[in-house]
Computed example of a mutant assay.
Amino acid sequence: MSWDSDLVDNVSDELFWDPKVDNVAIAVSAKAGTITLRGTVGSLREKREAKKAAQRVTGVLEVDNQLKVRLMDDAGRVDADIRGDVLQALMLDSLVPRTVDAKVLDGWVTLTGRVDWQYQRDEAEFVASNIVGALDVFNEIEIKNPKPNAGDLQESIKSAFKRNASLDAEGLHVSTDNGMVTVKGTVGSWAERDEAIDAAWSAPGVTAVRDDLTVTY
Rank of each mutant, 00 (worst) to 15 (best):
S5A: 10
V8T: 04
S12C: 00
D13I: 01
E14M: 01
L15P: 00
P19H: 01
K20R: 12
V24F: 08
A27L: 03
S29N: 06
K31P: 02
A32P: 06
G39M: 14
G42K: 07
L44E: 13
R45T: 10
R45S: 12
E46M: 15
E46T: 02
K47W: 02
E49A: 13
A54R: 03
V57W: 04
T58F: 15
V60Q: 14
E62T: 11
E62F: 14
E62N: 11
D64M: 12
D64L: 12
Q66W: 08
Q66M: 05
V69K: 11
D73N: 13
D74S: 09
A75I: 07
R77Y: 02
D81H: 01
D85S: 10
Q88M: 01
M91P: 00
D93M: 10
V96H: 13
P97A: 08
T99L: 13
A102I: 15
L105P: 11
L105C: 03
D106G: 12
L111T: 10
T112H: 07
D116N: 05
W117R: 08
Q118I: 01
Q118L: 00
Y119R: 15
Q120D: 09
Q120F: 13
D122I: 11
E123M: 07
A124L: 04
E125Y: 05
F126S: 12
V127S: 10
A128K: 06
N130T: 05
N130A: 03
A134G: 04
D136G: 15
E140K: 07
I141R: 05
P146S: 05
P146E: 08
N149T: 08
G151A: 14
G151I: 08
D152R: 15
Q154D: 08
F161L: 05
F161Y: 14
N164S: 13
A165H: 07
D168S: 09
D168G: 01
V174M: 06
N178V: 04
N178L: 07
V181A: 08
T182N: 14
K184Q: 08
G185L: 04
T186K: 08
V187R: 14
A191C: 02
A191D: 08
E192L: 06
E195R: 08
I197R: 00
I197E: 00
W201L: 13
A203Y: 05
V206L: 03
V209T: 09
D212T: 15
L213P: 11
T214R: 15
T214N: 13
T214H: 14
T216N: 10
T216G: 04
